[in-house]
Amino acid sequence: MGILYSEPICQAAYQNDLGQVWQWVKTDNNYINIQDGFNGDTPLICACRRGHVRIVSFLLKRNANVNLKNQKERTCLHYAVKKRFTFFDYLLIVLLMPVLLIGYFLMVSKTKQNEYLVRMLLDAGVEVNATDCYGCTALHYACKMKNQALIPLLLQAHADPMIKNKEGESSLDIVKKLKFSQIELMLRKAS
């Protein structure tokens, strides 16, 4: 299940196979920014889709371009922010919740991992206000998902809450519509 890629390094990054990713990069460093034939994903975007922190870290250390966009005009940051728990994560969390709060700690750890991923991309110089084919920035998606952990990180990196998407909606409009008052205050201060 998931996505199939025409580029083996992209498939390896998506499947969290660091050994394979390393082999491809060792063979030819140009593979680091190769774009897949199907959807234009780079190995970095593939790793961000699944939240594979070790692979992202490896690619960034080898100067992967954080601002390359795929066919939907999304950067790796869009995917890192859009990353949700998988069905398997939810299943584990629900099954383990009664057992000494293991499920809760698993959920917290997954959330922290996502924050770390976004912070790594921001530190690497990803364009925080890059828009995708819908005119949405990473902040638009963080607001739609009510992600209280990521919104402050994006704002610290100078995400602009006033950028409007193709439907004419800014991130501020989204949080107003969702009646998300704490975040609305944060966005108002930043704008």
Rank of each mutant, 00 (worst) to 15 (best):
F85D: 09
V66G: 03
M120L: 14
K112A: 09
T137G: 02
L100Y: 14
V66N: 02
R74A: 09
L122P: 00
L96T: 12
R62G: 01
K82E: 13
L59K: 04
A124E: 01
R119T: 02
Y79W: 14
H78C: 06
H140F: 07
D123L: 08
F88A: 13
K69H: 02
V126M: 00
E127A: 07
K69S: 07
I102A: 10
H140T: 04
T111V: 12
L100R: 15
L122W: 01
L122Q: 03
K72N: 11
V66R: 05
G125P: 09
L117D: 01
N129S: 05
L59M: 06
Y90W: 15
L96W: 10
N70L: 05
L91W: 15
K83M: 09
Y116E: 12
H78F: 10
F58H: 02
C133G: 04
Y79P: 01
C76M: 08
A80Q: 09
G103Y: 05
T75I: 04
N65Y: 04
L60C: 06
D132G: 06
L122T: 01
F85V: 04
T111R: 15
Q71K: 15
M107P: 00
F105D: 04
T137R: 07
L101I: 03
P98R: 12
D123K: 08
V118P: 08
L96H: 11
T86R: 08
L91Q: 14
V94P: 00
M120C: 09
F88P: 00
G125R: 08
V94H: 11
N114K: 15
D132K: 08
K61L: 09
L92H: 11
N70W: 10
I102S: 09
R84Q: 14
K110H: 12
K69L: 08
Q71R: 14
L106W: 12
C133L: 10
S109H: 15
A80R: 09
S109G: 12
V94I: 14
C133H: 13
L95D: 10
T111A: 14
V94F: 12
L77T: 02
L122E: 01
P98E: 10
A80Y: 04
D89L: 09
V118D: 08
N129D: 11
I93H: 12
E115I: 02
R119P: 00
V99E: 11
F58C: 01
E127M: 06
C136L: 11
L106Q: 10
C136F: 08
V126A: 03
